[in-house]
Design a protein around this nucleic acid. Structure first.
Length: 417
RNA sequence: GGGGGGGUGGCAGAGUGGUCAAAUGCAACGGACUGUAACUCCGUCCGGGAAACCGUACACUGGUUCGAAUCCAGUCCCCCCCA
């Protein structure tokens, strides 16, 4: 019963598990067969990097380009000034234009790893919706676009309904978010001939709005496609780790830690993640994901290497793997471990306390936590369990690089700056 | 506009004058087991201190009391019902 797409892009998306919903799978398939399809995904500019939560979208754009189409990474510079009510119970903070531009530059660094930007027909482009939203004239907007939206319909959207049911305030400002997002699609359709918007399944309502609006104001048929909401096999949310979000930008998260995140994938997720986040052939992903027992660890290493190669390059992936082997298999030290450089001013004449060392390295959030670690026997200095919470590290000992460990997995190197 | 209920640790949610740094669950962290898994089990989980101990904390401000998360007054916010 399921439609079997003929286009390379949709075929790949379907077999790899990217597809959740599509407004018109057959129609889109045909469009993809008939020529270059420009397609966009919107990203908000609330942070200066993207995290793994967006990786599925990024991979989708990469496949799009790989299969001969044009990716558009729309930056929500204008809409970020408002905040998206979708799935949020509280309004997002509003950012200044300056901060938003910084964020956009940071995000671009991530995209540069996955996509080729330029002026060619299938080169990616990165417009910013502030380009058309900032200069919008209120009266004109109401006249030309406001007439196409009914309040009745807008009230049926989950993002709105939820807020109203809980009697949480939904300001007019936020309420307008969906109009602007719909307007984006119409505008991209005009500027780039964009005929497809993709996004997470939570964006379905916004996407459909954009399609309707584009049809009404531009008389063009356009499509929408959503990806499934990603959760891990144990039901928890994807993309969080002990230290926080898994950023794709290396100045936010080192390639080694990024690699570790994938290395620690749950068994049950390996096959799925290989298909979504690597470019290995589907059959290979399935074979690796089906490995049993300790063998699946090899698959996890492949997963980590592949994903890290895409995000940070082959060298970074190899270095991360080498460090991991050194640390986990030989109990040694690898160059790639997170390294903290101590300011000589942090040391007193008698050196620095072991507790402070843990706090400075980021392995413990507070002195209390460091002491707890020590009391629980989870703290190690150069692979020797630390038992004395009052221990001082003398100056000359810090001159050499020290290896700190919190538990079996979290390690850091400390050296004197 | 009127009436009622409520704001407690990352979240959920007990606690109604001392024994409360605050039950319990979830999340998180450490340990055992293992495959750098999962499951299970044990432990920890505000901050400072080697420790004794100290400091902050139960929306906010002030008050009553030897003593307040708990009582009183005011302020802000949220929820429910009626108009």
């Amino acid at each position: 019963m399921t439609y079997k797409p003929k286009s390379e892009f949709l075929h790949e998306m379907q077999t790899r598990g990217f597809l959740s919903d599509c407004t018109d799978l057959e129609g889109l398939d045909e469009a993809l067969l008939n020529g270059v399809v420009p397609a966009y995904i919107g990203f908000d500019a609330t942070a200066d990097s993207l995290h793994v939560g967006s990786l599925i979208q990024i991979m989708m754009l990469r496949w799009l380009q790989k299969t001969g189409h044009k990716p558009i990474t729309l930056m929500g510079g204008g809409t970020t000034k408002i905040g998206d009510p979708s799935g949020k119970d509280e309004s997002r903070p509003q950012l200044t234009g300056e901060k938003i531009n910084e964020n956009i530059a940071g995000i671009r660094k991530v995209f540069d790893k996955y996509l080729t930007f330029g002026d060619g027909p299938t080169d990616a482009v990165q417009p910013n919706n502030a380009e058309w939203l900032d200069g919008l004239n209120y009266i004109e907007f109401l006249r030309d676009y406001g007439r196409h939206f009914t309040i009745n319909r807008m009230l049926t959207f989950d993002s709105v309904k939820l807020r109203l049911e809980r009697e949480q305030p939904l300001t007019f400002l936020e309420f307008n978010y969906m109009l602007l997002q719909a307007y984006d699609f119409a505008e991209l359709n005009r500027r780039y001939g964009c005929v497809l918007q993709m996004g997470g399944s939570d964006q379905w309502g916004n996407i459909v709005n954009g399609i309707d609006l584009t049809r009404r104001v531009n008389q063009n048929t356009v499509f929408g496609l959503t990806t499934p909401l990603l959760t891990k096999a144990d039901g928890s949310k994807m993309g969080k780790s002990a230290s926080g979000a898994i950023w794709l930008n290396e100045d936010r998260l080192s390639p080694y830690e990024f690699w570790q995140f994938w290395r620690n994938t749950l068994d049950a997720d390996v096959g799925k993640f290989l298909k979504l986040f690597t470019e290995l052939p589907v059959a290979e992903c399935e074979r690796l994901g089906a490995l049993k027992g300790a063998e699946i660890n090899e698959a996890k290493i492949i997963l980590a290497n592949e994903v890290t190669t895409l995000a940070h390059g082959a060298d970074a992936a190899a270095a991360a793997e080498a460090t991991a082997r050194e640390v986990f298999e030989k109990g040694g030290v690898g160059d790639d471990l997170p390294t903290v450089t101590l300011d000589p001013a942090d040391l007193s004449d008698s050196g620095i306390s072991i507790v402070q060392l843990f706090v400075k390295s980021g392995l413990a959030k507070s002195g209390k936590e460091a002491k707890r670690l020590i009391a629980e026997g989870g703290a190690k200095l150069d692979d020797k369990t630390v038992s004395d919470a009052g221990m001082m590290i003398p100056r000359d000992a810090v001159a050499a690089t020290l290896k700190l460990s919190a538990g079996k997995k979290r390690h850091a190197l400390v050296k004197l700056g």
